[in-house]
Design a protein around this nucleic acid. Structure first.
Lengths: 144, 144
DNA sequence: GCATTAAAGTGGGATATAATGGTTTGCAGT
DNA sequence: ACTGCAAACCATTATATCCCACTTTAATGC
């Protein structure tokens, strides 16, 4: 299961090591694409299939879905995992998520999020203070 | 059943001994994650399954659930219990809950809470005076 | 109540493997 | 054919996991 956070290096060749715990779940081929809140998303090919299916079934009649699909589908890269468990991050994605050397990988059950370390830290400190508020919101919605 | 409180040491290798009374209930594999009010939560894999299920079903469209998932799922750590009944607490969690050497483990029926000893003491003295007020609040809500 | 035994909690050392850095090989484009 | 880039391969270092040993506390029996 894809959970937890790991801090890894993005080396000069733009290679990023996936945490060993996730390699079975992710498989030897993954999809990386633009994510939300300035992160990247990584999916196993299987999970990606579901996402792409949902996004594409809505057709091209609606401007919003058209735009979002360009964002998500249009920037998706399918890439192999090498023998050491690494993938290459294309320049476009690297730029989008403002990635530098230190990367945070956050497991979100069915996908992985890739963050610039500083951005993640900022986010974490912010969210720690709001966690109880969020919890009660979700509680009201019946989610938790 | 997970009840009672125990004070244990967090050793230099960030290992925490689970009370022997709980080891059957928790099983040989547990999940530790960010909790509320600056504590950590420990679940058996079984209990964790229920929590993760609830959290992950809502997809990534809603910002609040996205954030809360980053908090809970993103910081969750699945780990084996070693032969001496110990688990490892990752740095991210240790930092979040401000854990030092002395740890309080509080059994909450279906989960365990992990507290910094001082924080727990403070909380205990604070809540003792408010318990009756809390009771009537819960009573109004029909909970007890 | 004291002694003996068992179990729980704590500490340290060794080994495997994960993460990273570097080198070579193959392919494509000029 | 040569050059440049990218991708696969190999090697090293660091870290985490496993295993064993000790100490302290609790329990049982005499």
């Amino acid at each position: 299961m894809l959970i937890g956070t790991y801090t890894h290096d993005l080396d000069p060749k733009k290679r990023l090591t996936l945490p060993s715990k996730w390699r079975n779940d992710l498989g030897k081929k993954v999809v990386v694409t633009n994510g939300l809140d300035n992160s990247l998303f990584i999916f196993s090919v299987n999970e990606w299939g579901k996402v792409a299916e949902k996004l594409s079934t809505s057709g091209f009649g609606n401007k919003d879905t058209r735009d979002f699909n360009r964002f998500m589908l249009g920037n998706a890269f399918e890439t192999d995992v090498d023998k050491s468990g690494r993938i290459v991050i294309p320049d476009t994605l690297k730029t989008f998520a403002k990635l530098s050397n230190k990367i945070v990988l956050a497991g979100m059950h069915s996908r992985v999020e890739v963050w610039n370390e500083d951005a993640w830290k900022q986010f974490t400190t912010k969210i720690s203070g709001e966690a109880d508020v969020l919890a009660s919101k979700l509680n009201e919605l019946g989610i938790i």
